[in-house]
Computed example of a mutant assay.
Amino acid sequence: MKTALVGIGKIAVDQHVPAIADSAEWELAATVSRHGSVDGVEAFTDMGKMLQARPDIRVVSLCLPPVPRFAYAMQALEAGRHVMLEKPPGATLAECHALDAAARAAGLTLYATWHSRHADMVGAAKSWLSDKMLRALRVTWKEDVRRWHPGQAWIWEPGGLGVFDPGINALSIVTEILPAQIHVTGATLEVPSNCQTPIAAEIAFHHPDGADVSAVFDWRQQGDQTWEIEAVTDSGTLTLRDGGAVMEVDGTVSGQAAPLGGEYPRLYAQMAQLVTTGGIDMDLRPLTLVTDALALGRRVATDPFED
């Protein structure tokens, strides 16, 4: 299937382009971007002109920041194209629900991707936890924003999510592996004095069986990066590390440290299946937890951020 990639930034170049190139199911037929392009691929700077010029392109994959994404996604759906959304699927839950309704009305596929759910050991962790009684779960997601998001000013503006941009990856794993549903009960958000979104957050969650569930996100981590989820159960302790690439259960380690390894090829394989079967996958639980944390969070001013 031919796809157009919209928004040629770091994540598109690092992950989407190689995943499409290595897939037997996909052909990158066009790009839409004001500044970026891919060698050998027809490039457009206007979404409408691409849709008009390339009716042969069935799928549009959106890698734009969250705030402008809704308009582009709706434009693609109205043109009869299937749509794949980079995480988070939108800036608000309301616009995500609107896209879902539009896709269903048109009989089109819409896929809210959560790449971290496709890390190597997430499925194994879900299986291991399926019959365990959870007593505590602790998420520690700490990375260096300057290393992973250099010069991306949009993340500090309203709708940019701040530290929840990576933190939502952790929440996408948690909502996938836990048998029970959780919800936010409180949060503390550290917001730089010159920004609109948090650089760090601590969150508490309600678990229906009384387990102690919490998360710490921080974008100021230097040196080793930490992407870890620890689940303490009645039958032992499971730890997912390196964003879900490595799993340890009571000293037994499975997997290899390879953050993002294999995740995006699996997203495109899933999208191909959804298009073939006419499916829609719009799981909004991770975004719901983030928006609830932003709604309930107590904001604490911290030092200005300088990129």
Score class of each variant (00 low, 15 high):
residue 240 L to M: 04
residue 240 L to A: 02
residue 240 L to F: 08
residue 240 L to I: 04
residue 241 R to L: 13
residue 241 R to Y: 04
residue 241 R to V: 06
residue 242 D to R: 10
residue 243 G to Q: 03
residue 243 G to T: 03
residue 243 G to R: 06
residue 243 G to A: 02
residue 243 G to N: 00
residue 244 G to Q: 03
residue 244 G to Y: 05
residue 244 G to P: 05
residue 245 A to F: 08
residue 245 A to D: 12
residue 246 V to I: 11
residue 246 V to R: 01
residue 246 V to A: 05
residue 247 M to A: 13
residue 247 M to L: 13
residue 247 M to N: 01
residue 247 M to D: 01
residue 247 M to H: 05
residue 248 E to N: 07
residue 248 E to L: 03
residue 248 E to Q: 07
residue 248 E to R: 08
residue 249 V to C: 06
residue 249 V to L: 11
residue 249 V to M: 11
residue 249 V to N: 01
residue 249 V to A: 06
residue 250 D to R: 05
residue 250 D to V: 02
residue 250 D to W: 05
residue 251 G to D: 05
residue 251 G to H: 11
residue 251 G to E: 04
residue 251 G to S: 10
residue 251 G to C: 05
residue 252 T to E: 14
residue 252 T to D: 12
residue 253 V to N: 04
residue 253 V to L: 07
residue 253 V to C: 08
residue 253 V to Q: 08
residue 253 V to D: 03
residue 254 S to I: 08
residue 254 S to W: 10
residue 254 S to L: 12
residue 255 G to K: 06
residue 255 G to N: 10
residue 256 Q to P: 04
residue 256 Q to V: 15
residue 257 A to G: 14
residue 257 A to L: 12
residue 257 A to V: 13
residue 257 A to E: 14
residue 257 A to I: 13
residue 258 A to S: 14
residue 258 A to H: 12
residue 259 P to D: 07
residue 259 P to A: 03
residue 259 P to Q: 06
residue 259 P to Y: 12
residue 259 P to I: 10
residue 260 L to N: 13
residue 260 L to Q: 14
residue 261 G to A: 15
residue 261 G to F: 05
residue 261 G to C: 10
residue 262 G to V: 11
residue 262 G to P: 03
residue 262 G to R: 09
residue 262 G to D: 07
residue 263 E to H: 10
residue 263 E to S: 14
residue 263 E to K: 12
residue 263 E to Y: 08
residue 263 E to C: 15
residue 264 Y to I: 00
residue 264 Y to F: 15
residue 264 Y to A: 00
residue 265 P to L: 08
residue 265 P to C: 04
residue 265 P to N: 03
residue 265 P to K: 10
residue 266 R to K: 15
residue 266 R to Q: 14
residue 266 R to W: 09
residue 267 L to D: 13
residue 267 L to P: 00
residue 267 L to E: 12
residue 267 L to Y: 04
residue 268 Y to Q: 02
residue 268 Y to K: 03
residue 268 Y to S: 00
residue 269 A to T: 10
residue 269 A to D: 14
residue 269 A to F: 05
residue 269 A to E: 12
residue 270 Q to H: 15
residue 270 Q to A: 14
residue 270 Q to T: 14
residue 270 Q to M: 13
residue 271 M to K: 01
residue 271 M to I: 09
residue 271 M to N: 01
residue 271 M to L: 15
residue 272 A to C: 02
residue 272 A to K: 09
residue 272 A to F: 08
residue 272 A to V: 06
residue 272 A to I: 03
residue 272 A to D: 04
residue 272 A to G: 11
residue 273 Q to C: 03
residue 273 Q to M: 05
residue 273 Q to P: 00
